[in-house]
Simulated scan of single mutants.
Amino acid sequence: MPDQPLYVLAMLCLSVLICEYLVRTTFLKHLSTALLVILFVALLANLGIVPSASQGSVVYNGIFAYLAPLSIFFLLLDVNLASVRRAGKPMLILFGVGIIGTVVGVLTGMYLIDGPAQFGDLYPAISGMFVGTYTGGSVNFNAVAIHYNMMEEGVLYAGMTAVDNIITALWMVVTLLVPTLFRRGLKKAPTLAAAQVVEEEHSERDKELVSVFSLSILLSLGLFSLLISNLLAEWLATMGITIPSILILTTIALLLAQIPAFHQLPGGHVLGLFSVYLFLAVIGAYCEFAALSQIGDLAWRLLVLVLTIVLMHGLFTFGAAAVGKLDWDVAAVASQANIGGSSSALALAKSLNRMDLYLPGILVGALGNGVGTYLGFLIAGWLA
């Protein structure tokens, strides 16, 4: 029975449900649903409740081939690039400086741990994944991983995710402390009414109602876009031009997201998030405990790498704020938008009681989702 496709898919969906419930209602709320899903399904796979990597499943192959890219497409429909200018110049400048710091951090970290020797052929992909995720969030991390088949490296992928989650959580503490310790001058008066509107809109995205009409449009758009991306990538390859199909899909999603009728469709965020969790569940199934010895010393090397990335990023971001005498709160929120994405930026703005930074944080986080995939592929291609 464990090898029956319907059973496997049902267990993956049930695993997402259990993990989401645990994160919402227990002490495990300090973990993300994403990390918990990986760990939970890894346990199931090693107990033989669901197929492991060595056993394989057509369900796993289907999720990698279709659902994972679709999750990227659905989540990117949230990105309205035209509204980014509302974030303001200081926020955009610090966000851009943070991206530069991230790239420098990845290159420095890989040098320190001798990345090419440690990761071998995976070195360019891992570099691109970390550049992507610390430009605007995990959407970019997964996009690069899908193209380079990193999901087949279950143990390593899980290790990267775990280290990423740990350091991201610690960076939230850092961005809370830095403004408190170094803040200068008076804060700008929070715009309460505008902030409440932004918060309500952001909250509604997590609870949006999906109609048959909007669901039909989203699925049709996603499936046709994925088909076009694959066909176009194959056609370009015959002409000697190699462009990852996921990059073409990203471009299509971003173009559609600029059209209000598509950008405002309810359900895309929920579809994308659930698809990401199923994708990560399969990553968990690929984590065979017997293979843990394979990661060995790579565990602490990954820790050194990620620490170097975020520290270099922080040095650039907060250094620019100090040199330019910019608002420390703005720098902190911009940094969180880089490291954790829109949700982390919003959470930090709330914690700092800077309601005027709600919208700018969300907007630059969305910008990071838009450009992070391109930058991740650029770095990976350059290092290949």
Rank of each mutant, 00 (worst) to 15 (best):
K188H: 14
S225I: 12
V198Q: 01
L181S: 07
L232T: 13
W235E: 13
P190S: 15
S214E: 03
F224D: 00
N230M: 05
A189T: 15
L192E: 02
G185A: 02
L236Y: 11
L215F: 13
L181Y: 05
I241S: 12
M239P: 00
H202K: 07
G185N: 04
L209C: 01
L231C: 01
A237G: 05
A194M: 06
L231K: 05
I217W: 06
K188W: 02
L209V: 08
L223M: 13
E201Q: 06
P244T: 09
Q196M: 13
A194G: 03
S220A: 15
E208Q: 15
K207M: 10
S229A: 15
T191P: 03
W235D: 10
A195G: 15
I241E: 13
Q196Y: 06
W235K: 09
F182W: 11
L227C: 07
I217P: 02
E234S: 13
L221K: 01
E201V: 01
V197N: 01
E200F: 10
L215W: 10
L215D: 07
S229G: 06
E199K: 06
S225V: 13
L221W: 02
M239H: 07
G240H: 04
E199T: 09
V198H: 05
L209Y: 03
P244K: 05
E234A: 13
K187F: 09
L227I: 06
D206I: 09
L186H: 12
R205N: 11
L226W: 05
S211D: 00
R205V: 15
R183D: 01
G185T: 10
H202Y: 08
E199Q: 14
L247V: 04
G240L: 02
D206R: 12
E234Q: 12
L218V: 08
P244S: 11
A237Q: 10
R183E: 01
I246L: 12
F182Y: 12
D206T: 14
R184L: 06
K207Q: 15
K188F: 01
E200M: 11
E204F: 12
L192I: 14
I246P: 03
S225W: 13
L226V: 04
R183V: 07
T191M: 04
A195H: 02
P190A: 11
L186Y: 09
I228T: 07
L218A: 09
K187H: 14
F182C: 11
L236G: 11
A195N: 09
V197F: 04
G222I: 04
F224G: 01
P190W: 03
L221P: 02
V210G: 08
T242P: 02
G222L: 08
K187Q: 14
K187P: 12
L219V: 12
T180R: 14
L231N: 05
L247K: 07
E199A: 14
W235H: 10
L221E: 02
F224S: 15
A233R: 01
I241G: 10
L181H: 09
R184Q: 10
E199S: 14
